[in-house]
Amino acid sequence: MPICQNCGYTWSYAETLKRSFTLTSYMRCPNCEAAQFQTAKSRRSTALLTATSIVLIMGFTILFDPTLYSFALFCIALVLMITTYPRLIKLSKAEEHLF
């Protein structure tokens, strides 16, 4: 789970998941309200997870037509993403360039 670089607060799973659905480039710490940014490595990891899931679902749908199997794969991928995504997030005080 992410740890606030300002106050050392360890975010809970629910807080991390809730705060990751923002449109801003930062997430506010639930404890001290300081702006926290995802590290470049963390952004690459989460992007890779998302891209892999999308490619698997699309590939399975193209190969086997939209069926119950593709819906089941979508549900499994969604559950895996929701459980894995918050654990991949690492925070820093300053925004880092992706490359």
Rank of each mutant, 00 (worst) to 15 (best):
2 P>R: 09
2 P>Q: 06
5 Q>D: 06
8 G>K: 05
10 T>R: 15
11 W>A: 04
11 W>N: 08
12 S>T: 15
12 S>Y: 04
17 L>S: 12
17 L>N: 07
17 L>V: 12
18 K>V: 07
19 R>I: 03
20 S>E: 07
22 T>S: 15
22 T>R: 09
24 T>M: 12
28 R>N: 13
28 R>T: 07
29 C>E: 04
30 P>D: 01
30 P>M: 04
32 C>V: 06
34 A>K: 10
35 A>Q: 14
37 F>P: 03
38 Q>W: 02
38 Q>E: 08
38 Q>K: 11
39 T>Y: 05
40 A>K: 06
40 A>T: 03
40 A>F: 01
41 K>G: 13
43 R>I: 04
44 R>T: 06
45 S>W: 10
46 T>V: 14
46 T>K: 07
48 L>G: 11
50 T>N: 12
50 T>Y: 13
52 T>S: 15
53 S>K: 08
54 I>P: 00
58 M>D: 06
58 M>A: 15
62 I>Y: 13
62 I>H: 09
63 L>W: 09
63 L>A: 14
64 F>M: 05
65 D>E: 15
68 L>G: 09
70 S>E: 07
72 A>V: 13
73 L>N: 04
74 F>E: 10
76 I>M: 13
77 A>C: 14
77 A>D: 03
79 V>I: 15
80 L>M: 11
83 T>A: 13
84 T>E: 01
85 Y>I: 00
86 P>M: 02
87 R>M: 12
88 L>V: 01
90 K>G: 04
91 L>H: 00
93 K>S: 13
93 K>P: 05
95 E>M: 14
95 E>H: 11
96 E>D: 01
97 H>Y: 11
99 F>N: 12
